[in-house]
Design a protein around this nucleic acid. Structure first.
Length: 796
DNA sequence: AATTTTGTGATTTTT
DNA sequence: TCACAAAATT
């Protein structure tokens, strides 16, 4: 049996999936079946038979996308009765580099051990604060914020402290101290803590590959093909990395859509896909997918209308393959953000009860996370189940972070930020002053804070009150006890038990329970044991990880706490895999929505200063607005059958009068004609003024009845309008057992006939060791080189 | 005097 | 939810 690519894909998709071009660029507009093409391309490469699965790398934007592609590809293979030996690597750039560094970092940067931790955003802030202290600087919050964002800007570009010329640096002059020294001190702090941040994962990988030709040679020969998804959001550093991991033999295929570049603030550079790639790889072949299978023409019309306003782009417009115009796109207007949420809830209920639409087929997309709160409240009140794709992910929550800090301390004693968190929550009576003393002592004696506690607590070198000392003694006893328990643990339950005992012993559980109680008294008490439950959830999550790791037969190593901590540090908002069967409305930001699709989509809060964001408006340049426009474009193109955009007349604090987003006018909702009582909305955005002349910052009518600010309504939510919907269900792939035994016993000779999964019947025309040259009966396939022993083909 | 608790006001997007 | 300043506690 073989995969019949031709019947499963359209012409362009087929050409893209089965192309043998060494360098391939696939330009795929929204909804053109990009993921489908990519998974089939991966299946093609896996079964072509000239490389091992382990020699193929597919890079995706999120871990979730990676898992999804893995499942879908395995399903394709399974459906076609194909087995492969081993698995390809599917991961993000960051995870891929992490894998590299876990092997190489301790050898090339000797200060690090294999058990280094990864600093997330919160940790980074703490490290930056330490730098301020260490350098005896007095900087206010604003300046510090500017410094942090300046450094993170440098880091995404791959610029290190040594690359900075301080004399020429204008930023250093502006802030009055050396940014180079500050940045260098930050890196030193991380190094002391045996810790790397997200950007370091990429920078260190690049440096090691660049500085050590033998490492590069070794790693680049490991892989024969790279596939990169969402290539329009790749930055220069990531592109440099790809090239470093490639050699002259390596195949490269990339997929992207320049109109969906939404991460320029993180260095994404879409000229890589539009120009650079063709310059670096002369034989680059390009295939464009233009048939949109996702949305109705009414929705695509809006998307096309919108994106036309971007000057810096190549003309391209989306066409519905179905030819179906579909339902018109609605504009829903309300008086306030509360009413907006009510209206959306109302409409969702209508779809659910009248049109029998599953909640899970509905998405609410917003610009920023702060907009989510009202939907949580409203949906809870209206008993609409929902899943929030939260940026402050589970692992970022205070109580979870505390728990994780205690866990991190177990594997990395140098992690000083975790140490700080541990002695502050629950408080041990050690504050800034005492901590500073301990840190100074540790710094001059070149030991970590935890080592100090474990070995020097009785040495009287630092005066501690009896209470402080008792607290630390209790901590180290629990700590040592936990380490013993962990080393003895051989079942998931015992792993969990060890950590739970630890949490109880250090007083974390008691502390978190007290917090819950206090909060229950001050708030409306809708979340009585929230924090405690989250902490318990962390334990369960850990247990499940160990369980999965123990069942995973592909890994040779025993699962450890280190693996768990490393694994979760790269898990992001879009990765939160809620219970799959749960029928719930999906609430998320436009960024998170990238790559997803839903039959029904509401885009909420189309207001000046919300979408486009006030930041983009304040930056006052065309590029920022164009990026917001692309972001809105991404949001619109998520919708399959029905789309509504919403706006309201009062801003989110309820005290000012909001101006509708400029984008509404651009998609044909003529806001210029809509009056706000005594003034008319003109242009909401003026690229030459810092605060756009008509933005809501400086134009608020002082007093007028709210109702006079209502728009004339053209969208009758809840009416008997007929919506034609055919809810489509995502097919969830089951996990096949992919452990296969390579069949090396079969010997091939010239003249042997073989049957290949993708190419059909062929004849062996040459044998060289385990490499076969096969001529296929299908003229289009021609002659291919295959490796004997692959399950992709067999002797007949 | 050092530390912890309490109140207040502001918040882009994420690997 | 989080940071920061002021008040309360040890």
């Amino acid at each position: 049996m073989s995969i019949n690519f031709k019947t499963l894909l359209n012409k362009e998709q087929y050409l893209a999936a089965t192309s043998d071009a060494k360098y391939l660029r696939i330009i795929a507009g929204a909804g053109t079946g990009k993921t489908r093409t990519l998974t089939y391309r991966l299946s093609y490469l896996l079964t072509r038979g000239d490389m091992y699965p382990s020699q193929i790398v597919a890079i995706t934007f999120t871990n979730k996308a990676a898992n999804e592609m893995k499942e879908r590809t395995l399903k394709i293979l399974q459906d076609n009765n194909l087995n492969i030996m081993g698995t390809p690597t599917l991961s993000t750039f960051h995870s891929f580099c992490l894998r590299f560094l876990r092997k190489e970092l301790p050898f090339y940067k000797k200060e690090f051990t294999r058990d280094f931790s990864i600093a997330d955003e919160t940790d980074q802030k703490d490290y930056f604060k330490r730098v301020v202290d260490k350098m005896h600087l007095t900087v206010d919050a604003k300046v510090l914020k500017a410094v942090v964002s300046y450094i993170s800007g440098l880091k995404t570009k791959g610029i290190r402290p040594i690359d900075i010329d301080d004399d020429k640096n204008l930023f250093s002059k502006k802030i009055g101290f050396s940014i180079k020294d500050f940045y260098a001190e930050y890196q030193d702090q991380l190094l002391q803590a045996n810790c790397v941040d997200f950007d370091d994962l990429l920078i260190f990988t690049r440096d090691i590959l660049k500085e050590n030709p033998e490492v590069r040679k070794n790693w680049s020969s490991k892989y024969k093909a790279f596939m990169i998804d969402e290539f329009q959001d790749t930055n220069d550093l990531q592109y440099e990395l790809v090239k470093l991991f490639m050699n002259n033999e390596t195949e490269l295929s990339v997929v992207g859509d320049p109109d969906q570049t939404i991460y320029t603030w993180r260095g994404a550079n879409h000229s890589i896909i539009t120009d650079k790639l063709a310059k670096d790889f002369k034989t680059l072949e390009t295939i464009t997918l233009y048939n949109n299978y996702r949305s109705t023409q009414a929705i695509l019309d809006k998307a096309n209308m919108l994106i036309k306003h971007n000057k810096n782009r190549e003309e391209k417009s989306l066409k519905a393959a179905s030819g179906d115009n579909g339902n018109k796109v609605d504009l829903i207007r309300s008086e306030s953000f509360k009413q907006d949420a009510d209206n959306i809830a109302h409409k969702i209920e209508y779809f659910h009860s009248v049109n029998k639409v599953d909640y899970s087929d509905i998405a609410v997309i917003m610009r920023s996370n702060f907009q989510s709160r009202i939907f949580e409240q409203t949906f809870t009140k209206s008993r609409i189940p929902y899943i929030l794709y939260d940026a402050t992910a589970f692992y970022e929550r205070f109580e979870v972070k505390c728990g994780l800090s205690f866990m991190r301390l177990l594997v990395n004693t140098s992690d000083s930020v975790s140490f700080e968190r541990c002695i502050a929550n629950p408080p041990l009576g050690i504050g800034d002053k005492t901590l500073e003393k301990i840190e100074d002592y540790c710094y001059s004696n070149r030991i970590s804070e935890m080592e100090f506690c474990l070995t020097k607590l009785d040495s009287e070198e630092i005066k501690l009150s009896s209470k402080q000392k008792a607290g630390l003694v209790n901590l180290i006893n629990a700590y040592k006890n936990c380490q013993i328990n962990l080393s003895k643990a051989d079942t998931p339950a015992k792993f969990e038990q060890a950590i739970q005992t630890y949490f109880v012993d250090v007083g974390l559980f008691r502390f978190i329970q007290d917090m819950d109680e206090k909060e229950a008294r001050t708030t409306y008490g809708d979340n009585e044991h929230n924090r405690e439950n989250n902490l318990k959830e962390l334990l369960v999550d850990f247990k499940e990880f160990i369980e999965r790791a123990m069942l995973d037969t592909t890994s040779e190593n025993e699962p450890t706490l280190v693996d768990y901590l490393i694994n979760i540090s790269l898990t992001s908002a879009s990765d939160t895999e809620e219970e799959k069967g749960k029928d719930a409305v999906n609430v998320m930001t436009a960024h998170v929505s990238k790559g997803l699709e839903f039959p029904i989509v509401f885009i909420t809060g189309m207001l000046d200063g919300v979408f486009p964001s006030s930041h983009a408006i304040n930056e006052g340049n065309l590029a920022s607005i164009e990026e917001e426009r692309r972001l809105f474009y991404v949001a619109i193109t998520r919708a399959k059958k029905y789309l509504a955009v919403t706006t309201y007349t009062h801003d989110r604090f309820g005290d000012g009068y909001a101006i509708p987003s400029m984008f509404l006018k651009e998609i044909g909702f003529d806001v210029a004609k809509m009056t706000f009582g005594d003034f008319q909305v003109k242009n909401s955005y003026n690229p030459y003024s810092r605060y756009g002349n008509n933005s809501y910052y400086n134009q608020r009518p002082k007093s007028a009845p709210i109702s006079s600010y209502m728009y004339p309504s053209d969208s009758d939510y809840g009416s008997d309008e007929k919506i034609n919907l055919t809810p489509s269900k995502m097919i969830i792939a089951s996990k096949p057992n992919n452990k296969q035994i390579i069949d090396t016993n079969v010997k091939y000779e010239v003249g042997d006939k073989i049957a290949h999964a993708s190419f059909g019947i062929g004849t062996v025309i040459a044998v060289e060791g385990n490499k076969l040259t096969v001529k296929f009966e299908d003229e289009a396939q021609g002659i291919k080189k295959l490796i004997a022993g692959f399950k992709a083909f067999r002797k007949i």
